[in-house]
Nucleic acid binder design. Structure first.
Lengths: 339, 339
DNA sequence: TTGAAAGCGGTACCAT
DNA sequence: ATGGTACCGCTTTCAA
């Protein structure tokens, strides 16, 4: 029940604690024979070093905090999965914080012990609060930002503006002139950079093409499929509705798709729908979208963190903008009025 | 840059380290006036205790490991979100491990430092390997199981067998006699308890009603919507197909729904589809399903862990089986042949 | 109620 | 290449 410590291994191998430590961590400067004895002794005792003790002594915990506005949504769980796997390959663990419904609880990030128990922070699409930035600075914590920028920390992202542009121009090229937008952020959301960039891109593209979009066709959403479904239902039930909907995410696009079918609209005949992301279900339901590679972004974020921690030869830094790509499927086509 | 330690606070408050420690943790046995001085000093210095040092000294890290077969799938990300929030309310953090694609890497759980850095383990729907069970025992780590059982650890789950029974009988009640099943686990998956329980429930229900299901109507799946979509497409393209599909999860049910629409089948006229879970998109697409409350299960799992750690007054333990409920929507109805 | 001091289990610098 | 030995910063008896 009582675990073997480094001293037990040292005694068994007939060497000092220091040597055991070096040998087990592969620090060189250890005679191969000694190294062998140490490994044998450690194995015989089923020795596992205490990460806590090592952390206290070395100042490195092997933990990376992940701050996200949601855990349970497509982009966030997908990127977390990929970050976790990459970090684990380098003996690091993630310590995720789900900000959803925690406007107040964020105190716990600074007051509580999160920041003091991690070696670094990956911040996914949220803005750090003042107290949080202060503490990060004071602790000298390395930060990697995904989406929303953080000071001059390395940043991983797609060009949201360009992604929407791609989506909007796809619709425009098909002949659509009246296009609704689904996914304007509600005020107070923690998650806002992506929503606002995408909306800006939409407006800009319409402008450049001499088109406009009435306010009532720019739909609020909390970015859930459920909420989007309701909004789309309302939009499409009106006497006059647009010939296309650009949804700022596939989850919302799927909500719109379901709404259209529910109302008996032909897609894309009566209504074209395009999303952004390339959610697994977009392919399944034939939703046209602008694809981003989330797993690659996760790997990049994790690598950037490892680099910040000096654990990688390569160095990252700066902005890494991942490409996006139009994936044309069955939910978009020329408006029937043209056909 | 150099952080204040407990000694700095002690000095500033004119008391000993021990008193600071007690005061800050609210351990009673501290004079209110002293307590005040300590708090003021701590605040003035922006003192935050080192969790690592506290962990080493106390033997408790405040970390709970979460072992799951996937992070990026509906059930798993949803329950993780809820576990994280509950645990965080009690000053604990989660340390998730994504087993997906890591058949070998599981070594890292024991060899690597996961088990030695957590106070307990929540194991979600995976079977622990021998080395893992051994280590858990040796370390005396408390375990809470979700779904797949672990020795006599507290267990949180729904009755998968009953859930499928509910789904199958719904179809049978509607008049279906030829029902396909989607979601037989492929061999080698880490995630298997739920798949096998659900399949068993399906077979049993059919038996009890004197029905049978040919092998080619029991479809393999890795439980992704994408894979299910492909299987359903194949099934429904055959010259003769069932009047209903029971999908072992909503993600798969949605895949089947998309396939049916793609082939121009009327749902539920030509084909009824029922899922299990009540995924957000099930409501959106009108998929009939058997609902389970994942957030409640997450809260329960977290509470059970806190109880195991002696941090809660109430005690959990034993099996907690959460209720499921049929949610009838538009994807199921009587088979056309009856109408 | 408070303080002194011995750990907790490693790491890393300084010698040798 | 190896050993000695101060820490790392907090918790927890044991005494006072």
């Amino acid at each position: 029940m009582t675990q073997p410590t480094i001293s037990d291994v040292a005694r068994a191998a007939g060497v000092s604690n220091a040597t055991v430590s070096r040998a087990l961590r592969g620090l060189g400067k250890v005679h191969p024979e000694t190294r062998d004895r140490v490994f044998k002794a450690a194995a015989a005792l089923d020795y596992i070093a205490s990460p806590t003790a090592a952390g206290l002594a070395s100042g490195r915990t092997g933990l990376v905090g992940i701050i996200t506005p949601f855990i349970a949504r497509w982009f966030f769980s997908a990127i977390m999965s990929s970050i976790e796997k990459t970090l684990r390959d380098h003996q690091h663990h993630i310590l995720p914080i789900d900000l959803e419904m925690s406007p107040i609880t964020r105190l716990s990030l600074t007051q509580g012990s999160l920041f003091k128990r991690v070696d670094g922070l990956i911040v996914i699409n949220v803005e750090m609060q003042v107290a949080e930035r202060d503490l990060v600075t004071r602790l000298g914590l390395p930060v990697v930002a995904v989406g929303y920028p953080f000071e001059d920390a390395p940043r991983i992202r797609i060009d949201d503006f360009a992604a929407v542009t791609l989506a909007a121009e796809h619709l425009i090229d098909l002949g659509h002139r009246s296009i609704a937008y689904l996914g304007k952020a509600r005020s107070g959301a923690d998650h806002k950079q992506t929503p606002s960039d995408r909306l800006a891109g939409f407006r800009d593209t319409l402008d450049r093409h001499g088109l406009s979009c009435p306010d009532e066709w720019v739909l609020d959403s909390d970015w859930s499929a459920f909420d989007a479904h309701g909004s789309a239902l309302r939009l499409l039930s009106a006497s006059e509705h647009p010939t296309a909907i650009l949804a700022a995410s596939d989850e919302m696009g799927l909500g719109a798709l379901a709404a259209a079918r529910e109302l008996g609209l032909d897609v894309p005949g009566d209504l074209s729908i395009i999303g952004i992301d390339d959610h697994e279900l977009a392919a399944v339901f034939g939703l046209t979208t602008v694809r981003q590679d989330v797993a690659a972004q996760g790997t990049a974020a994790a690598s950037a963190m490892l680099a910040e921690l000096g654990l990688l030869d390569e160095s990252f830094g700066g902005d890494r903008i991942f490409p996006v790509e139009l994936v044309s499927r069955r939910s978009t086509g020329a408006p029937a009025s043209l056909g």
